[in-house]
Design a binder for these strands. Structure first.
Lengths: 259, 259
DNA sequence: GTGCCTTCTCCCATATGGTGAGAATTTCAC
DNA sequence: GTGAAATTCTCACCATATGGGAGAAGGCAC
């Protein structure tokens, strides 16, 4: 059910989003009637959007994104933005749990760590650095991010990759990896069980974008100890909470639509 | 003097643009006072922009572009958009002048022709095709676009390029080319005087984006004829008029600021 | 050309929603 | 704590958004 939008600005932004998302394919009057906007109101609003450069007239009954806004928004680095919003949250997470926290994104098949907040544990997750790239198949963050790929892209990744074991626990068999990733998609959580370093266990969850797509992953790393093996799932709730807050900050009041 | 903006939407979009353009560097209250907006109004507006995903809160007193909008706008292909808006104008230009009209953009040192409208002349500019790429140094469109490069980028281009003559008239000396490009920057118009094909002359002017930067170039091509050499400058006014209309459509009411 | 249909703009009476000063509250640094 | 800055809230006023409808402006078929 279409909620009725009260302020004029809200209405305008909803209209603008519809116009940009559509890209000029759907006739304008259709977009407008889908939003339950009166014609004359819609024209009034869209003409202001055009004047400001946020939309453009493509032709009769057809509008699309505006150049001015496109040029401005194209200068923004989305993952830098995500990192910036994530940093304070991860700081909080790290200080509450005492664990090293990371945020990573996928960049052509590799995980790039955009944020790293060290925990209190003596030498936990010692070797990662911000900006560092790591193979995706062995880390918890990487496995979550691989789960966000389309099935075609994932097939390519699994076929092309040479999966070098970093520890005896690293998953190197593509079919096992596929299984693992599919399980992670289901459960929404990934564990790196000493796969990247023998003395480390890692828990990761996805960060969702406005359309529910996976745009990043955050993780908590804890040292492994034979005598007192850690209970990674203890930290699930706080990690998920952090991800949800981050998603909410990223998306505004926009609620990710569920199918 | 800051003009006073009447409608609430206009105010919001001006504010939004300032926020995005700044990228979160300038404190919010500074942006706001530069725009002569009352504090409480500014907060009211920006919170709606954030809710809609067009802006994000970066920290105290700091806002920047929103992810939702960034992701949407990043899907738009700016040059395709320019081409789409240019096509009807070039059609008009071609039918009025009878000359073949082109719109081209620069893509890593080469000109890509995004629009081509054939003229009436028998076999005018016969070999270009839409989507075709051509070396920049010899065509009128290319020379205009090179004029839009920063001086560093232009230096690189002139140093790296191997300038192969296509006709006896092609400019192949980098220092002559530099001179030519600088003259074009001054005059705002470029001529390809049989440099690409012996039987063709071409006139090109830049298409300006919202900040006055050169984002494309349009041209009129005419066949060269020894007995009755064409007068390319005859077509200058109509070409420039076309460019101005296109710029205006691209930028909305946004007036390109002159230094 | 003529007529028809759609897109688009303009007008205007109405009242909804925008406005912004100032107070109140929260946040943060020291 | 204490003070300063950031942020939200309140509210009375009235500017401005609203949207139905008229009609201008194209476009298309014939």
């Amino acid at each position: 059910m279409a909620r009725t939008h009260t302020t004029s600005l809200e209405k305008s932004l909803v209209l603008l989003r519809a116009i940009i998302a559509d890209g000029g394919r759907t006739p304008f009057n259709e977009i407008v009637s889908d939003l339950n906007l009166p014609t004359s109101t819609a024209y009034r609003l869209v003409s202001q959007l055009v004047d400001a450069g946020f939309a453009s007239r493509y032709g009769p009954n057809s509008f699309g994104p505006g150049i001015v806004a496109a040029l401005l928004y194209q200068r923004t680095d989305v993952s830098a933005l995500v990192a910036r919003l994530a940093r304070p949250l991860l700081k909080d997470l790290a200080s509450k749990s005492g664990l090293t926290s990371h945020l990573g994104v996928l960049e052509n098949g590799m995980v790039t760590y955009k944020v790293r907040i060290p925990g209190r544990a003596p030498r936990a997750a010692g070797f990662t650095r911000e900006g560092m790239q790591l193979e995706a198949y062995c880390s918890a963050v990487g496995k979550v991010l691989l789960g966000g790929l389309s099935s075609d892209a994932l097939d390519d990744y699994l076929n092309e990759g040479a999966f070098v074991p970093l520890t005896p626990y690293t998953i190197v068999d593509p079919s096992v990896l596929r299984q693992e990733i599919s399980a992670i998609r289901e459960s929404g959580i990934a564990i790196d069980n000493r796969e990247v370093a023998e003395d480390m266990i890692c828990l990761a969850v996805p960060v969702l974008g406005p359309g529910g797509e996976i745009i990043a992953a955050i993780s908590s790393s804890m040292p492994y100890n034979d005598k007192a093996p850690p209970e990674p799932m203890m930290y699930r709730t706080s990690l998920e909470g952090c991800s949800q807050i981050l998603s909410a900050r990223l998306c505004g009041k926009t609620i990710a639509v569920d199918a």
